Simulated scan of single mutants.
Amino acid sequence: MNTIETFYAAFNKGDWQTMADCYHPEAEFTDEVFVGLKGREVPAMWRMLIERGGGDMDVTFSHVQETAEKGSADWVAVYLFSATGRRVINRIHAEFELKDGKIYRHRDRFDLHKWAAQAMGFKGKLLGSTGFFRKKLQKTARAGLDRYLSRNI
Rank of each mutant, 00 (worst) to 15 (best):
D21R: 12
F34W: 09
G53N: 04
Y23M: 09
G144E: 14
H106T: 10
F7D: 03
F81Q: 14
H113S: 12
G14R: 03
V88H: 09
W16Q: 00
A20N: 03
V59I: 15
W46E: 05
H24A: 09
R147E: 15
T140P: 01
V78F: 10
D56V: 00
K123P: 06
V78M: 11
R40Y: 06
F132P: 05
R109L: 12
A77N: 12
I50F: 06
F110R: 09
K114L: 12
G101I: 01
Y148W: 15
M45D: 02
D21A: 13
Y8G: 00
D15S: 04
K125E: 08
T6G: 03
L49K: 09
Q138H: 00
F110G: 08
E41L: 05
E32T: 07
A119F: 07
E28I: 01
G128T: 10
A44M: 10
S62R: 15
M120L: 15
W75Y: 15
G55Y: 01
R91A: 11
F110V: 03
A119D: 04
F34K: 00
N12G: 14
E95T: 13
Q138M: 02
G53S: 04
H93R: 14
T140A: 14
H93I: 03
L37D: 01
G53E: 00
T3L: 01
L145K: 09
R105K: 12
M1C: 05
G14I: 06
E51R: 11
F122S: 13
R47D: 07
W46Q: 10
K99E: 11
D31P: 01
E28G: 06
G101P: 03
A73V: 11
R40N: 11
H63Q: 14
E95G: 08
G144L: 09
K125F: 09
K99W: 03
H113G: 11
M1Q: 10
R107C: 08
K70T: 15
K13A: 11
R107V: 13
G144V: 00
V33H: 07
T130R: 04
W115A: 03
H113I: 01
E28F: 00
A20L: 01
I103M: 13
V78Y: 05
G55W: 00
A117I: 00
E51D: 11
A68H: 12
G39T: 06
E51S: 06
R134F: 01
M1K: 10
V64D: 03
T60I: 09
D31F: 05
I153V: 14
Q17K: 15
A141L: 05
D74S: 13
A116K: 08
I50C: 02
C22K: 12
G54Q: 04
S129C: 03
N2T: 08
E5Q: 13
I92D: 10
I92S: 12
D111H: 10
A94W: 04
F122T: 14
Q17S: 13
D58R: 15
C22F: 11
D108N: 11
F96C: 05
M19W: 11
F7P: 07
E32K: 09
S129N: 13
D58L: 14
C22Q: 10
K135S: 14
K123Y: 06
D56H: 15
E66M: 09
H93N: 09
T18G: 03
V42S: 07
A143W: 04
K139A: 15
V33C: 04
V33Y: 02
E26A: 12
D100Q: 13
T140M: 14
K102E: 08
R134V: 08
R86H: 12
R86E: 08
